[in-house]
C-alpha cells in the first residue's frame, strides 16, 4: 500500500511541477549556433574524462551515491562537492525495491530513497538540475531493469540524453538481454556500460568487448556490493584477462573502501569506483556537513 501512496504523491506533488519547468529549461538550453568546444555529452564525455585522468597520471575516480539518500537534498549538495574534490565521473544510483546485486549498505540506502519518494523521473530531474547549475562532469546512472522496462527502453534512453545522463549501468542486464536498451542508447548517444565479473569466461569477455561503449565495469570480487577489508587476491590476473580483449577503459568497483584499495586498483585499472563506503559515510554526516564531509572523504580516498 505504501508504494501506491508514494506513486500518487509523486504525481501530484512538487515533483510534477518541477518536471515541467525543467523540460522547458532544457529544451532552451543547447544554444544553437554558438560553437561549443567543451560541451561533450554521452559516450564522448565519458571517454574524455578517462583520457583527462590518464593524461594527469591517475585512474579516473568514480564515486557512487544513491539518489535521494539520506534525503532529497543530497544530490544537489553533494555531487558538485564530489567533483570539486576530484571525482572524474559520478555514478548515481536509481533506487529499486529489490536490489539483488547489492549488499546491505546500498540496500538500506535505496530503501531510504524509496521512502523519500524517489522515482526514476525524480532521478532524471536531479540530473537536469545539476546540468543547469553548470555541472559538466560525466554522470552515469546505476540501476535495475524493471524501472527502465516500465519507462520503455527508447523513452528511457531519450530522457537520459535530454536530462544529461551520459551512461547507464544496469546490474541485472547481461549482454544477452541488453539488445533493446543497447540499440536505444546508441540512438541517443548514451553509453550502455557493460559489466564483467571474476567469474566471466573468455567467451563472455570477448562478447562484452565487442559491444562495450563508454567503459567496462569490472566487478572486483565474487559477491555483492559492500566494503571489504581486503581486495580479491586474483584481481590482477582477472583484469589482465579483461584488458587483453577490451579496448575501452576499464573501471573496477565492489568492495573498494580505503585509500590503499584506491591506490592499488588505480594502478591496475583506468577507473576506481567507490560506492558503499561513501554511502555509509553520508549516513554519518549531518546535513550541514554533508557536502564538505563527502568531499573530505573523497580526498582521503584519493590519498590527498
Amino acid at each position: 500500500m505504501s508504494n501506491e501512496q508514494r506513486a500518487t504523491s509523486n504525481e501530484t506533488g512538487s515533483t510534477r511541477r518541477e518536471v515541467g519547468k525543467h523540460i522547458v529549461t532544457s529544451v532552451l538550453m543547447p544554444p544553437k549556433g554558438r560553437p561549443q568546444s567543451a560541451v561533450l555529452t554521452g559516450v564522448a564525455r565519458i571517454s574524455e574524462a578517462f583520457a583527462r585522468a590518464k593524461s594527469a597520471g591517475h585512474a579516473a575516480f568514480i564515486p557512487y551515491i544513491t539518489v535521494g539518500h539520506p534525503d532529497r537534498e543530497t544530490v544537489a549538495a553533494v555531487v558538485p562537492a564530489l567533483i570539486e574534490a576530484g571525482a572524474d565521473i559520478v555514478e548515481l544510483g536509481v533506487p529499486f525495491s529489490d536490489p539483488l546485486a547489492d549488499g546491505v549498505v546500498i540496500q538500506r540506502s535505496t530503501q531510504a530513497a524509496l521512502a523519500n519518494g524517489v522515482t526514476l523521473d525524480y532521478c532524471l530531474d536531479e540530473v537536469r538540475s545539476l546540468r543547469r547549475v553548470g555541472v559538466t562532469a560525466p554522470i552515469v546512472f546505476l540501476g535495475y531493469m524493471n524501472p527502465i522496462a516500465q519507462k520503455g527502453e527508447e523513452a528511457f534512453a531519450a530522457l537520459c540524453a535530454e536530462a544529461g545522463v551520459d551512461g547507464v549501468i544496469v546490474a541485472d542486464l547481461p549482454p544477452e538481454e541488453a539488445g533493446d536498451l543497447r540499440a536505444a542508447c546508441a540512438r541517443h548517444g548514451v553509453a550502455l556500460i557493460a559489466m564483467l565479473a571474476p567469474t566471466s569466461t573468455e567467451k563472455r569477455i570477448a562478447q562484452v568487448a565487442a559491444l562495450a561503449t563508454g567503459f567496462v565495469y569490472c566487478v572486483g570480487l565474487t559477491g555483492v556490493t559492500g566494503a571489504r577489508d581486503a581486495l580479491a587476491t586474483d584481481l590482477r590476473g582477472y583484469l589482465d584477462r579483461v584488458r587483453a580483449r577490451v579496448s575501452v577503459p576499464i573501471a573496477v568497483g565492489f568492495g573498494i573502501s580505503r585509500p590503499e584499495h584506491v591506490a592499488s586498483v588505480g594502478a591496475m585499472a583506468d577507473g576506481v569506483i567507490v560506492g558503499s563506503a561513501l554511502v555509509k559515510r553520508l549516513d554519518e554526516l549531518p546535513l550541514a556537513e554533508r557536502a564538505s564531509g563527502a568531499a573530505d572523504f573523497v580526498r582521503w580516498l584519493m590519498g590527498e
Binding site: 508504494n3 501506491e4 508514494r6 506513486a7 509523486n10 504525481e11 533506487p95 529499486f96 525495491s97 529489490d98 539483488l100 524509496l114 522515482t119 526514476l120 523521473d121 535495475y144 531493469m145 524493471n146 524501472p147 527502465i148 522496462a149 516500465q150 519507462k151 541485472d172
Partner: peptide, 18 residues
C-alpha cells in the same frame, strides 16, 4: 516487468517498484 531474473507478470507501482 522484470523480477528475479525473468520477464513476467509482476505486481508493481507506476515507477516499476515491486
Amino acid at each position: 516487468g522484470v523480477l528475479h531474473g525473468s520477464r513476467t507478470y509482476v505486481i508493481q507501482d507506476a515507477d516499476g517498484q515491486i
